[in-house]
């Protein structure tokens, strides 16, 4: 557990998280430091019960047979960490820089408590940019589920975020990164001055000589600046990306891609005469039918694909509640987030 008196020696807005596994399998924060306006708050960890299998049965079998190298130790628990900012948002010029290091076989769930509000600068001229930078290093068999609430840029705000994920082989990372239009209750729709977001997943591996090499797998970057940002949104109020990599997210990635393939064809016609015998739907079909109805009502559009060793899901919805419901519905139906990372990993879609 972290010290009740976290160190405050770092630079403004800097934070550092280092999770390690003490024998036999006890996750421990060897560093958990932060400075204003960043705040890191650990909450009740998710206890992993022994009947939980590794996500892929064939992998488990393979690992069991392959006794020469250490089979991955499963941690006894998955800590839950809240990434918070004072006042629930960032004012102009706030700069947050956070590093997360996950040692071998550790798992971490991180989330927020409500959307990250980006406030407008006091004067529009020469206002400093508000930014958040996250660098994550994930060791083999370690896993991070980063599931924050959306970023909510207010009118006139200027914001940039960069999230770099270095993932060693057999490491896993799952992130959700989403943005909402502003304060819709005030009629504020995509009225910020600029928004930039960049997510990169890097493959870290040893080459034939045992030397560490790195290769960028995916860079998901968004640049919203210049004229008529609202006109590019086709009436949507929220956009998001889910990026999944590694064995712990294999099942979820497959689920997204298969559900995407199962979406009804656009512009297709129903050739049926309307009096066929009704075939009873399976439970999954029933769930999918209800979800599709909900997607239509909430204006949810989405895509999913496997690309360069990752799975990338893009989604858009009319409003944040529709997006939340859609994402929550899929994550709960698939089930691995709750099982492997705990209910805390689903708080952001409640």
């Amino acid at each position: 557990m972290p010290s009740p008196f976290p160190s405050t020696t770092s630079k403004p807005g800097h934070g550092s998280i280092h999770l390690t596994l003490l024998p036999p399998a006890l996750p421990t924060f060897s560093a958990l430091t932060y400075t204003y306006p960043l705040k890191l708050l650990p909450s009740t960890p998710h206890i992993l019960t022994s009947h939980v299998q590794t996500p892929n049965e064939s992998d488990a079998l393979f690992n069991a047979l392959n006794t020469t190298l250490s089979s991955p130790t499963r941690p006894s628990a998955v800590p839950l960490l809240f990434l918070l900012t004072y006042g629930g948002g960032l004012v102009s010029g706030d700069q947050i820089s956070l590093t997360i290091t996950l040692d071998r076989s550790t798992r971490l769930t991180t989330t927020t408590q409500g959307s990250t509000k980006i406030f407008k600068p006091p004067s529009p001229d020469g206002a400093p940019i508000t930014r958040q930078d996250l660098t994550v290093h994930i060791a083999p068999h370690a896993a991070l589920w980063l599931a924050p609430d959306p970023v909510q840029p207010f009118a006139e705000s200027l914001y940039a975020q960069t999230q770099i994920f270095e993932v060693e082989r057999e490491g896993s990372v799952g992130i959700v990164d989403w943005i909402v239009e502003g304060r819709r209750a005030r009629g504020e729709r995509w009225e910020f001055r600029g928004w930039r977001g960049r997510n990169e997943v890097w493959d870290i591996f040893a080459d034939g000589d045992g030397e560490e090499k790195r290769r960028m797998l995916v860079r998901d970057a968004v640049i919203l600046e210049g004229k008529d940002i609202r006109g590019r949104m086709d009436g949507k109020g929220v956009f998001g990306t889910v990026i999944l990599r590694g064995p712990l997210f294999k099942g979820l990635a497959e689920f997204f891609v298969e559900e995407f393939k199962a979406l009804p064809r656009i512009g297709g016609r129903d050739w049926g005469s309307g009096n066929e015998v009704k075939v009873p739907l399976t439970r999954t079909e029933e769930w999918r039918k209800r979800r599709l109805e909900r997607e239509r009502v909430d204006g949810v559009l989405w895509t999913a694909c496997h690309v360069r060793g990752c799975a990338v899901v893009k989604f858009a919805a009319s409003g944040v509640e529709g997006a939340r419901a859609w994402l929550g519905n899929i994550l709960k139906e698939e089930g691995s987030i709750g099982r492997d990372f705990g209910e805390g990993g689903l708080m952001f879609v409640r």
Binding site: R196, V222, I223, L224, R232, D234, F239, K314
Partner: peptide, 15 residues
């Protein structure tokens, strides 16, 4: 610094 300026296009093209 290159990136998608029109997020809806990812949606339309992907779908």
């Amino acid at each position: 610094e290159a990136g998608q300026g029109v997020m809806m296009l990812d949606m339309w093209v992907g779908r």
